[in-house]
Amino acid sequence: MSLARKGRWITLVGLVCLAGVYVRALAFTPVERLQGPAQKIFYLHVPAALWTEAAMVLVGLAGIFYLFLRDPRLDRFAAASAEVGTVFATIVLTTGPIWGKPVWGTWWTWDARLTSTLFLFFLYVGYLLVRGAVRDPGLRARYAAVLGICGLCLVPFIHLSVFLFRTLHPQPIIVKPSAPSLPGSMLATWLFSLAAFTLLYVGFVTQRYALSLAREAQHGEHADHA
């Protein structure tokens, strides 16, 4: 089975799981009393946010290893992870304001968490623009690796921003040193959603990696990564 085909199957399983998350979240998970039904945006917003950050961490790590090893597979993986991270960041930046309006009373506020997440999105877009603008494969990979490492440095700041600054954005209720402060049924739905987003990330990255391979073969791009 080809890599693209494997990616398609994983994506399909991820989409089916996501459909299951929709059913479970909307029909079988209790409504939070203070925030109302809008709280259920949490089951999509937080897993997407975690994978937005994780994707950039992986882009940065691949960049660091690429600069030492000059292995084109690392560059291909970083490109794939960045594109998928951009998609997940778009979900975070659209579902966040939709959740914020009924709960905070505003679509957007320039607090540390929101602003740094927007900056991460721009970094992702910049990363993809750089990759599209530089034709030389070796140079493109090196520029992209440096941008990826910048993104890697930004991620801990985003995660800790709610502790370092006074923000409207709440502090983590799951990814924190102590036990999750969430009822079991809500936690189960969230974990199910995290599994679906993980499958989608793996499926998308596998397909995108296969696409890079096919393009390189098509253009006869014997990447000069030395």
Partner: peptide, 29 residues
């Protein structure tokens, strides 16, 4: 609070973004 419309909007937006990207990858590969 009666704010289910926001929830529905967020779920639709997420589905549209993910399906559009999945379709884009499918077509490109």
């Amino acid at each position: 609070p009666r704010n289910a419309a926001y929830m529905v909007a967020a779920y639709i937006v997420t589905a549209v973004i993910l399906l559009a990207y999945a379709l884009s990858l499918y077509r490109r590969t």
